[in-house]
Design a binder for these strands. Structure first.
Lengths: 147, 147
DNA sequence: GACATTCCATTGACTCCGCAAGTATTGTCA
DNA sequence: TGACAATACTTGCGGAGTCAATGGAATGTC
């Protein structure tokens, strides 16, 4: 089916493009960015790791590894939960917030540029709506980059 | 932008689902399947590796590795080109064609099921059309699984 | 006919991420 | 209370794919 194969290709193509750019300009992967973004909008700029894994559609181990990198870069801190010793929050640091701010600007512009080149506002809306119907896609929504 | 973040999530979600199934039933990844499929419809069931990398949106090295697996499994053969010693064709074997046949049935059904559950025919068409506008998505088209 | 250039393909080192297994903590129910 | 399940997270291993570097072959230029 065309829709399916195109979804594969669309992902591959756009990801490659945007990821390369984000990497070159800020040293972040797409998922790094999404993680910072999600944390930035979260209550107290922190979030349980499990929560994060649901938002990003990653497995818990994926989240651990993702945060490893962000922690090493000082963008995210590990904060223990006082009431439940099992959980540890991922908390955006000031550096992380600054990084997010810095990256947002260019990244959002790139995304907009890429999509606006091929779609009208209404079509983007429609595309988002359609994709949102697939299972699990619009879980904890409000999602991606500012605007 | 919602459309972008949902594209990411849609890919992650659907891929995970369908890939797991394909893996369990036939030991193929999604890209393995796409490769077999593309080869199956190619002139003489063979294709230059560069060509394949364009169709699958993989880098040449990605193709080399992908075919490595398929060759080990006896689904694809390496055939030299007489007129240009640089190129080597990937040629679908009879076993490969059989495997494709076997996998197609279930896989196509799964894909259809997944999409049909959430979209009407017209919506799928529309979705495919929208995704196809993104750069590089509808290159060498006719694309995916029988239908 | 020698040279640089370009193209096809492969390899090694790396990243990202999923799976399965393991640990630590919490909750439940006898 | 103590046993057992469930939850949150981490870790070892492996697969898949990228990039950069390489080698071999074809092409264009003088």
């Amino acid at each position: 089916m065309r829709a399916w194969s195109r979804l594969l290709r669309a992902y591959a193509a756009t990801t490659r493009l945007l990821s390369t750019e984000l990497q070159a300009e800020h040293g972040l992967t797409v998922n790094d960015y999404e993680a910072l973004y999600v944390l930035g909008r979260a209550e107290g700029r922190r979030m349980k790791r499990v929560e994060l894994s649901r938002r990003l559609l990653l497995t818990p181990s994926g989240v651990t590894r993702l945060l490893e990198g962000l922690e090493d870069a000082g963008l995210v801190e590990r904060v223990a939960c006082p009431t439940d010793l099992r959980v540890s929050y991922a908390q955006l640091t000031d550096a992380g917030a600054a990084k997010l701010e810095a990256a947002s600007c260019g990244h959002v512009a790139s995304v907009r540029a890429l999509f606006a080149e091929h779609f009208s506002e209404a079509e983007m809306e429609h595309l988002a709506e359609l994709l949102g119907r697939l299972p699990g896609v619009s879980e904890g929504d409000d999602a991606c980059g500012a605007a």
